[in-house]
Amino acid sequence: MYKFVILCSIFIAASHADVVQTPTKRETRASLKPLSVCCDIPELADERQLSKCSPKPPGPCEDVQCIFEASGFLTDKNTLNKAAYRSHLQKWEKSNPGWTDAIYKAITDCVDNDPRQHLDVACKAYDVFTCTGIAMLKKCPETAWKC
């Protein structure tokens, strides 16, 4: 009888316990995370340029400025080398299938126009890079969406 009571107690406890569920690809719980964390955009820079600018310089502009200068994306600190940046984005898209719409939007919004992201410090590299990230987020492929 004692074993029966223990067995019943275990059954009742188990039936009232929270069931641990494995999270699915998309979290169903609401969140106020910035949308930028929801799109898994692959690294845009080449490893050579990243290594030239590491360790990361301090400040809101210096790291992006360093990478843009090392990559030849600027003709001077305030002028985007549109041909070089457009070519880089097109080459990147060929290595990252599924991102065609995002790259087209980035070129249209950020290369063909003169974006300004309103950082307190004037920084062309930051303006263009932030614009590129926003454009790619807006056209994030379903396969890269993780929220």
Rank of each mutant, 00 (worst) to 15 (best):
E93T: 01
N96T: 01
Y126I: 05
I67R: 15
K3L: 08
H118T: 10
A84D: 15
F11P: 01
D63G: 14
D46C: 08
T22P: 04
C123T: 08
E43C: 03
K33V: 12
L137D: 07
D40R: 06
Y104G: 06
C123E: 03
P55T: 01
P55Y: 14
D114M: 07
Y85E: 10
V19Y: 09
L44V: 00
Q65R: 05
C8M: 15
A125G: 15
P34Q: 09
A30Q: 03
L80N: 09
A135E: 05
A122C: 06
A106L: 06
Q90V: 02
L137Q: 07
L32I: 04
T100Y: 13
V128Q: 13
R48S: 09
T24K: 13
K82C: 15
I103D: 03
L7F: 04
C8D: 14
L80S: 15
Y126S: 14
K94F: 00
K77F: 08
D127G: 11
H88M: 11
D18R: 12
L74A: 14
P115T: 13
L74Q: 15
F11M: 13
D46I: 03
K139W: 01
L50Y: 09
Y2R: 07
V121Q: 03
V37G: 00
H118N: 07
L119H: 09
A17P: 02
D46V: 13
P34V: 10
I6W: 12
E27Q: 10
R48G: 08
M136R: 01
A13V: 11
Q21V: 04
E69H: 05
A135G: 05
K25Y: 11
L89W: 02
E62G: 09
A106N: 06
T100A: 15
C140K: 05
A102S: 13
S71K: 05
D127T: 06
V111Q: 08
S71W: 00
L44N: 01
L32V: 05
N113L: 11
T130V: 06
A84Q: 12
I41D: 01
A144D: 00
N81K: 14
H118S: 14
R26D: 02
K94A: 00
A17E: 03
G98K: 00
S31F: 08
K3H: 11
E142R: 06
G72P: 05
T100E: 14
D109Q: 15
A14S: 12
R26M: 05
A13T: 11
P115G: 06
S51R: 07
L44P: 00
W145A: 08
K52T: 03
E93V: 00
K91Q: 15
V20I: 09
V5I: 15
L80A: 14
S87R: 14
